[in-house]
Amino acid sequence: MYVLDEPTTGLHFADVDRLTQVLHHLVDLGNSVIVIEHNLDVVRNADYVIDMGYEGGAKGGQIIAQGTPEEVAETHKETKSYTGYYLEKQL
């Protein structure tokens, strides 16, 4: 199992693409990969998204949306998911 916290921080866009390929390769090899990430290029390539919100700090920590990126995008109006709102624009 790999757990990565914001692995795209400071990366060039081309490197984000390469990172996404590496993450898929790790999964293809049978590994579990958990990524804490705000970069929507990475989020939209996830198999499953768990959106924690609504805000940070004391207002956060609740699961407000979960599912495939498409499911999170489709339900953003009901869940008030910021991630879903922005995913909808990219998918």
Score class of each variant (00 low, 15 high):
Gly56His: 11
Gly61Phe: 10
Thr79Cys: 10
Glu37Phe: 01
Lys89Tyr: 08
Tyr86Phe: 14
Thr79Lys: 10
Leu4His: 00
Val27Pro: 02
Val3Glu: 04
Tyr85Val: 02
His12Pro: 05
Ala58Gly: 13
His25Gly: 10
Pro69Asn: 07
Arg44Phe: 01
Asp51Arg: 02
Gln90Gly: 06
Tyr54Lys: 13
Asp47Tyr: 00
Asp17Leu: 12
Gly53Leu: 06
Leu19Tyr: 01
Asp47Thr: 07
Val49Asp: 01
Asp17Cys: 13
Ile64Pro: 06
Asp15Tyr: 12
Ala73Gln: 08
Gly61Trp: 12
Asp47Pro: 01
Pro7Tyr: 02
Leu26Tyr: 03
Tyr48Gln: 01
Glu70Leu: 10
Ala46Ser: 04
Val43Arg: 00
Tyr85Met: 08
Val27Met: 03
His25Thr: 11
Leu19Asp: 00
Leu91Arg: 04
Tyr82Arg: 11
Ser32Asn: 15
Ser32Tyr: 10
Asn39Leu: 00
Glu37Gly: 05
Arg18Trp: 13
Ser81Pro: 03
Leu87Tyr: 04
Gln66Ser: 14
Val42Ser: 04
Gly60Cys: 14
His12Tyr: 06
Gly30Asn: 04
Lys77Val: 11
Val27Asp: 00
His38Cys: 11
Tyr86Met: 09
Gly57Pro: 09
Tyr54Thr: 12
Glu70Trp: 06
Arg18Val: 13
His38Thr: 11
Ile50Lys: 06
Gly84Glu: 05
Leu91Trp: 00
Val72Leu: 08
Ser32Ala: 15
Lys77Cys: 10
Thr83Asn: 06
Pro7Lys: 05
Asp28Trp: 02
Glu78Asp: 15
Glu74Leu: 12
Glu70Gln: 13
Val16Phe: 05
Asn45Ile: 02
Ile34Val: 14
Ile36Thr: 12
Val27Arg: 04
Gly56Cys: 10
Thr20Ile: 14
Val42Asp: 02
Glu88Ile: 03
Ile34Tyr: 06
His12Gln: 08
Leu11Asn: 09
Asp47Ala: 03
Asp47Asn: 06
Leu29Ser: 14
Val49Thr: 00
Leu26Gly: 03
Gly57Asn: 13
Val72Ile: 11
Pro7Cys: 07
Glu37Ser: 07
Gln90Glu: 11
Val16Lys: 06
Glu71Gln: 15
Leu91Ile: 11
Asp5Ile: 05
His24Leu: 08
Asp51Gln: 07
Tyr86Cys: 05
Ile36Ala: 12
Glu74Arg: 13
Leu29Thr: 09
Ile36Met: 15
Asp28Gln: 07
Tyr54Asp: 12
Gly67Gln: 03
Val22Arg: 13
Leu4Ala: 03
Pro7Ser: 09
Leu87Pro: 02
Leu91His: 01
Lys77Asn: 11
His76Glu: 07
Thr9Glu: 10
Lys80Ser: 08
Tyr86Ile: 07
Tyr2Lys: 08
Asp17Val: 15
Asn39Met: 03
Leu26Trp: 01
